[in-house]
């Protein structure tokens, strides 16, 4: 199947990419995630790419798109677990993914999302509207 599963964890969505991406899958992921954020009213998205061995400019763009699109839908995106070799390559390629939050692993990413939610009091009111 050309789709990557998206898990819902409380008010966050978790995507773990465990296969080698090609363009079609990446595009599907973008669409699915945006739909899912809309449907669940998720406040944050965690994309775990620790098993991904390459990210090229297209996938980099998709990651950037997802971050921007989810921002519009009022959700923060954190890309977690990037491999050192992938990070070095992206920088050399000229794609430092500005505007995308990153974290070392899922746990740290989750903490980052929570602290970002907590630091924004306006958004906490929204939370009250959507109790779990």
């Amino acid at each position: 199947m050309d789709r990557i599963p998206i898990l819902k964890m409380g008010q966050f969505l978790l995507v773990t990419i465990q296969i080698d991406l090609y363009d079609r899958i990446a595009l599907n992921l973008e669409t699915d995630l945006v739909q899912m954020i809309h449907k669940t009213g998720a406040r944050g998205v965690l994309i775990d790419i620790s098993a991904v061995s390459i990210v090229d400019s297209f996938m980099g763009r998709i990651l950037g798109n997802i971050a921007t699109m989810s921002k519009i839908l009022d959700a923060e995106t954190v890309v977690v677990g990037m491999q050192p070799a992938v990070a070095i390559t992206l920088v050399e390629l000229g794609l430092p993914l500005n505007g995308v939050f990153t974290a070392l692993n899922v746990e740290r990413g989750m903490n980052l999302l929570q602290s970002r939610l907590a630091s924004n009091p306006d958004e906490e009111e929204d939370e009250d509207d959507n109790p779990e």
Binding site: P84, A87, I88, L90, V91, L104
Partner: peptide
Amino acid sequence: IKTVSATRLMGA
């Protein structure tokens, strides 16, 4: 600058 960018991509 490259080293710093790569570090940030890792989430540090």
